[in-house]
């Protein structure tokens, strides 16, 4: 009996520890968002830094976003095509693919791949600056690290991911049309018409809205993990690994929340 009690206590203590650190982590992320909004959104807005990071985070992620979007468009169209052939409805392939790609797969796949790349890059860079005391040096020179380092990265990530999602939607549509035409003998122009016909503006907006939130999340997690890196080069590696996990879990959790919000609307 006492062993059972002891085990139960240990389990509860472990669960409590995980919950406490989880809430602490979420609280830290919220605090960082608050600080960045209050201290960053003031003149000068750091437009040059924001554009620098948009190039660094967004433009340099174009090849990855291109490859991911092409393949997700092809794979999903092929899967739907196979399923629809069984019902003798292969001509509906455009209708079936469009909603899943625009509302769900393109934003989520890009956030999971390109977003994780952005977040880990931020964590590694800020983590290295933290362990080499460069962040303290910025503060000691009278500048604000939140304004100088966090604000431009957050804004850049928040803008870059939806722009990449727009590009990804175009490519997913194009690659889906190729599969429809070549594999299922559904003309590409018919695929295009049915694809676009199925979509309402709210579908585009829900996809883009998700990308904006995912971008913000990616920026927040990447920066927070970097700023909370402990001392030593090993700590940078640990933070970066944790960022991948945190980004993936947060994006999928947030996707569920956003889907419950957006679905009734669209």
């Amino acid at each position: 009996m006492s062993n059972f009690t002891e085990s139960a206590k240990n389990v509860l203590a472990s669960v409590g520890g995980v919950l406490t650190s989880g809430f602490g982590w979420v609280g830290g992320i919220c605090r960082l968002l608050w600080d960045a909004t209050i201290r960053g959104a003031r003149r000068p807005f750091g437009i040059h830094d924001i554009f620098y990071h948009m190039v660094s985070l967004g433009v340099r992620s174009l090849p990855l976003a291109t490859v991911m979007s092409l393949f997700v468009g092809m794979v999903l169209t092929w899967q739907f095509g196979e399923a629809l052939i069984g019902f003798g409805a292969k001509n509906a392939i455009g209708y079936a693919s469009s909603l899943a790609l625009v509302r769900e797969l393109v934003p989520v796949i890009l956030a999971l791949t390109v977003g994780a790349k952005m977040a880990t890059g931020m964590t590694a860079e800020l983590g290295s600056m933290k362990v080499s005391e460069q962040i303290d040096a910025i503060a000691s020179l009278g500048a604000d690290p939140i304004k100088k380092l966090i604000w431009p990265r957050l804004v850049a990530a928040t803008w870059s991911l939806p722009i990449l999602a727009v590009w990804g939607n175009v490519l997913a549509l194009a690659s889906g049309a190729v599969i429809a035409d070549v594999v299922f003998d559904v003309p590409a122009d018919y695929f295009y018409e049915t694809y676009v016909d199925e979509l309402w503006p709210s579908d585009y907006l829900s996809g883009l809205g998700k990308s904006v939130v995912f971008g913000l999340l990616v920026g927040l997690i990447g920066c927070y993990q970097g700023l909370t890196t402990k001392y030593g080069t090993e700590a940078v590696g640990i933070s970066t690994t944790n960022t991948v996990v945190a980004t993936s879990v947060s994006i999928l959790s947030m996707d569920f929340i956003l889907t419950t919000i957006f679905l009734p609307v669209s």
Partner: peptide, 23 residues
């Protein structure tokens, strides 16, 4: 406050152990 610390750090400078130069 934030402005007070900014003013303080214009009067007090710190040289860090590894230099902490911006890479």
């Amino acid at each position: 406050d934030h402005e007070g610390l900014r003013a303080l750090r214009q009067k007090v400078a710190m040289v860090f152990q590894g230099g902490a130069l911006f890479d």
